[in-house]
Design a protein around this nucleic acid. Structure first.
Lengths: 112, 112
DNA sequence: TATAAGCGCAACTAGGAGGTTGCGTTATGG
DNA sequence: CCATAACGCAACCTCCTAGTTGCGCTTATA
């Protein structure tokens, strides 16, 4: 770990959605949403998969920019990073807005 | 098609995110966001993959509830369905809010 | 009534995702 | 200084995904 392609901020939301498209990773994100840093062992606890499995998920989250890691002592501390969440949210906002305005245009056309 | 597991509304956002986690499917969603119904052949046009490939993607979107289909004549008309988008958005809002409140609690703690 | 458009189904392939195990390395702590 | 906790790396496995092709069925249309 510690260098799984820091990957530029990536303006494309698909990888972010893909990273969020897994129940285990959503659970990890939820746990990291407490603002605290957690070690891999901590995050593994309670999840029914091995530490290496968790590590792989964290790597995916990190490549999507949703998580940042820093080695402290013998532990690898992971913490949440909110930027991609905002990106994803604004994308969904765009889609919803496009949909709404398309609908009202259609409605106006029908009523005309 | 016509019956690829209508799948109950599904309150879990992971499948929705997974469906959105693909550039081709995001493109399809964007095209369907115009509020119009489009046939598979229409949606295939301009995408560099076969009709069957597009069909598979549409099936994924349909299982996630993001798209609805109805056979009309010899065409299968697909249209956008906004509910899962709202679900995903509210989930992202929850995460962001959890993050913000956790941060302000930490800040208050430090300043105390 | 042929022909063509639009589709569904099934089989197949290559590659990636999720998951495991085994083993070696580096820090902590008694 | 030695045991152990926390990792990283690599190999491996299974299953799903994205994509293709071939074929046959149904619906429009010239």
């Amino acid at each position: 770990m510690s260098n799984p392609e820091p990957s530029p901020p990536s303006t494309h939301p698909a990888p972010v959605f893909a990273a969020l498209g897994d129940a285990t990773r959503l659970e990890l994100v939820a746990r990291l949403g407490d603002g605290q840093a957690h070690s891999i062992a901590q995050l593994t606890d309670g999840l029914s998969l091995t530490r290496q499995g968790v590590t792989k998920h964290l790597r995916v989250l990190e490549q999507a920019g949703l998580v940042k890691s820093s080695r402290v002592g013998r532990e690898n501390q992971f913490s949440f990073a909110p930027e991609p969440i905002k990106l994803a949210r604004s994308y969904l906002d765009t889609v919803a807005e496009q949909w709404d305005s398309a609908l009202s245009r259609l409605k106006a056309f029908v009523e005309a």
